[in-house]
Design a protein around this nucleic acid. Structure first.
Lengths: 211, 211
DNA sequence: GTCTATATATCGATAGAC
DNA sequence: GTCTATCGATATATAGAC
């Protein structure tokens, strides 16, 4: 038991880590309890079932990501163009998946452990991201800023690209979240057909990074 | 038991389907045996353990994908440019992940069930795809065909984009594999900074698809 | 709210008859 | 090679003392 942290928060913290690392089915209530420092039966004073822990973590991760995206979009001016909107969206998405790889694993890999009802709710929450990005791309294409090849496939491809950062980013690696976000923002702009040559002409183009 | 198919092949077929749909840990040997039409104990006449089934399927999927990519690359002329190489690679990757979503699930989501030794072997096999695509991008950047922003991130982003097709493609959907591959090839060309304007100028540009 | 003890079920894997 | 029967371990979840 940790001082200064409630038992329920300790269960959340341990469950998140173990579900992400070992998978939901491979993680046992006994293992969670042991890491928290209590007996397995005591877990049921805080969560009705193992699935309730997963649902709590899934819902929390999705709401955290929702908040980060909303905060990032709110920094934009009301008349921001589609390019700025896309940048804010991709930046928030990449940053979240880099800095919260455990939450990313829960949402992207462990959702099969949810009950049918909770699974539907999670998919519904996740679909809002696709809708948001789809709106940005549609507006950008309509205004002539973008030249989208296919709306739905572009949306999924960009989202999946952002999500994949969670599989390789390491806090002790050579690249900072800022640097990574900058690259993915550029990639997303290319994918939607935003013409960057005007920007490139304003400064010397850097060589390809060969880390 | 199916006539014309050996028991071991039936186990492979059923295991692939159940591992992909329910996950490795959530799939029981009894469930596999039941679907095959034999008793659970009889499975051990064909595989030493549950993990051996997963490893057989993982290895098979990775080798199938390897073959598809090699076949696609071999259709190219010996002096094919980087753009054609990228197209052949992406086409094969997207096509495989669309038409073999179960194999894709095994390789991309169920590998945590493998033993440490088998896991390392699978990761090693999978790394060859990254190396191949990395070579194509590096050569294309060196020759001036591409303008790669960051080699490693571009490789991962493109691969993950191709893989994601397995999560939404349906054989009874509106899009054929050919149409999907065409879109993803274009997306990949944009991501590596291949200039398409010369091609676009040769014909009227189509509006964005709003399916 | 945590403990000990346990109910109830199911798991992967094995043994030996046929 | 498949069957029946079962081993030994472990799973989630519960009951009741403190």
């Amino acid at each position: 038991m940790m001082s200064g942290a409630s038992t329920v928060d300790a269960i959340r913290r341990v469950g998140l880590e173990m579900f992400a690392r070992d998978g939901y089915e491979a993680t046992t209530m006994r293992a969670i309890a042991s890491e928290v420092g209590i007996q397995a039966g005591s877990l049921y004073n805080h969560f009705a079932s193992k699935e309730e822990i997963l649902w709590d973590l899934t819902r929390g991760a999705l709401m955290q990501l929702t908040s980060r995206i909303r905060e990032s979009m709110e920094t934009l001016a009301v008349d921001a163009d589609a390019r700025d909107q896309l940048s804010a969206f991709v930046d928030a998405h990449v940053r979240f998946h880099a800095l919260n790889s455990d939450q990313a694993s829960i949402v992207n890999r462990q959702m099969a452990g949810l009950s049918a009802t909770h699974y539907r709710q999670a998919v519904s929450l996740r679909a809002t991201f696709e809708t948001q990005l789809g709106d940005i791309l549609r507006n950008g294409d309509a205004s002539g800023e973008f030249h989208v090849i296919d709306l739905r496939m572009s949306v999924i491809a960009i989202l999946q690209m952002c999500i994949s950062v969670s599989t390789w980013y390491r806090a002790d690696g050579k690249l900072s979240p800022d640097e990574i976000c900058a690259v993915y923002v550029q990639l997303s702009q290319r994918m939607v057909g935003f013409d960057q040559r005007a920007l490139m002409a304003s400064g010397p183009r850097k060589g390809v990074s060969q880390r």
